[in-house]
Design a protein around this nucleic acid. Structure first.
Length: 397
DNA sequence: TCTGGGGTCCTTAATCTA
DNA sequence: TCTGTAGATTAAGGACCC
């Protein structure tokens, strides 16, 4: 069986590094990208200067502000980051066509069999990092190993600007002293459970037999742990990612009780979700409502429609019915969200584009045309455009 | 103390059905 | 037709990831 070489690349402090690159006055300063200080929200990314103050991703922004009031707090500019992300992926695709983006700032690359063309795995990693510095003015951390697990752990091993190569024969020794917290799928809950049976390191995990792990965890999860402790992981790169759901949610500055305001928000969310569905020529059959009450108590309600849709009105109507049936009307709501999933498999049915908003939007027309092309049908455009969150426009039908 | 927004996947339970 | 069950489908929640 041919030995594979998988590379994982992870951009360093991606959002913060872009801001510092584009505004020299931010260099050397603690830069924190995330929610507005004073509001409800968390840190998305922060510069390494900010990390010295104990600031980290997912930290409540209020805590970050307390620790570093002199820091530069910025809201994220996602369009900019998406554009830079595309440039990063383009560099990777020049290294090898087998690129699988995992998120906005990381990707796996299959670099098997490139030694004649580009040198050893270490040389390929160094060359890739250098190109990203030269062309984008940003640094990345790279891990290279025989599979995705080792590559990913490798890129985390030394940060920032790291390059870690773990040949297959060194994998077991390299993993042994690592904390199980670094493994995939081991979060706070699993860590606690593992610690209770005396497992803190990969070596300790490896000492357990599969059957004994299965008595403490589910069969699927224990296999997952068993394999990871031995450095076993997938080595195939999937270049054809397809999304499975589209959702939007908002957290209110202060909890909202007024059902009118909640329904208006749902209408806005339905328009956003519907718009993205149309831009991506997707129609879903399941609508999911998400509600977070005080004390972070979170509920979801979902319904399967009798037809697939990308229409604002259909999504909104389903969401409204879910909300009204939920019994949460009258409760103080912290967050409300809306999603669509389970794309239609039957392409022969009627395309539900009825009552979409923003009909003057050129992009929408293009999306509608794309939908027509995709489904080979004629589209009927209905009614005047609707303004987002318009009072009194929430018609009964 | 305070916990975003966008996702994926897994487990469990209820219900339907071959 | 009765009965029991395996398996699919639907729904809800939760852990986890970036």
């Amino acid at each position: 069986v041919a030995q594979k070489w998988i590379m994982h690349l992870d951009m360093d402090a991606f959002f913060a590094a872009i801001e510092q690159r584009d505004d020299p006055s931010l260099r050397g300063k603690p830069v924190i990208i995330g929610a507005k200080p004073g509001g409800r929200g968390v840190v998305s990314t922060c510069s390494y200067e900010a990390r010295k103050f104990g600031i980290h991703s997912a930290q409540p922004i209020s805590q970050a502000y307390r620790r570093c009031p002199q820091g530069v707090f910025l809201r994220p500019s996602m369009e900019k980051y998406v554009a830079v992300s595309r440039q990063v992926m383009a560099v990777l695709e020049e290294v090898s066509p087998l690129v699988e983006p995992i998120s906005i700032d990381e990707a796996f690359v299959d670099i098997t069999g490139l030694d004649r063309l580009r040198g050893t795995p270490r040389q390929i990693g160094g060359f890739t990092k250098q190109r990203i510095v030269d062309e984008l003015g940003l640094t990345a951390s790279v891990g290279i190993g025989p599979n995705r697990l080792v590559a990913k752990l490798g890129s985390e091993y030394e940060k920032p600007d790291g390059l870690t190569v773990v040949p297959p024969e060194e994998v077991l020794d390299w993993l042994a002293p690592m904390s199980v917290a670094r493994l995939r799928g081991v979060g706070p809950q699993a860590q606690k459970k593992l610690a209770r049976i005396g497992i803190k390191t990969v070596a300790q995990l490896r000492a357990w037999r599969r059957e004994d792990l299965a008595r403490n965890f589910g069969a699927g999860y224990s296999d997952h742990l068993y394999d990871q402790s031995r450095g076993i992981g997938g080595d195939t790169i999937n270049t054809a990612w397809e999304r499975k759901s589209i959702s939007k949610e908002v957290t209110f500055g202060e909890d909202v009780t007024d059902p009118e305001e909640l329904l208006d928000t749902l209408l806005y969310l339905a328009q956003e979700v519907g718009r993205i569905c149309r831009c991506e020529t997707l129609q879903g059959t399941v609508v999911t409502l998400k509600i977070r009450l005080e004390k972070f108590e979170t509920h979801t309600r979902q319904t399967k429609l009798d037809h697939a849709t990308c229409s604002d009105r259909s999504i909104y109507r389903a969401a409204r019915e879910l909300f009204q049936a939920s019994g949460f009307a009258g409760r103080a709501v912290r967050l409300i969200g809306l999603g669509v999933s389970d794309w239609e498999s039957d392409r022969g049915r009627q395309l539900d584009l009825g009552f979409v908003s923003e009909q003057s939007d050129q992009k929408l027309f293009e999306a509608v045309d794309a939908l027509n092309a995709k489904f080979g049908r004629q589209t009927v455009r209905l009614g005047p455009g609707r303004k987002p969150r318009g009072k009194g426009e929430r018609g009964s039908e």
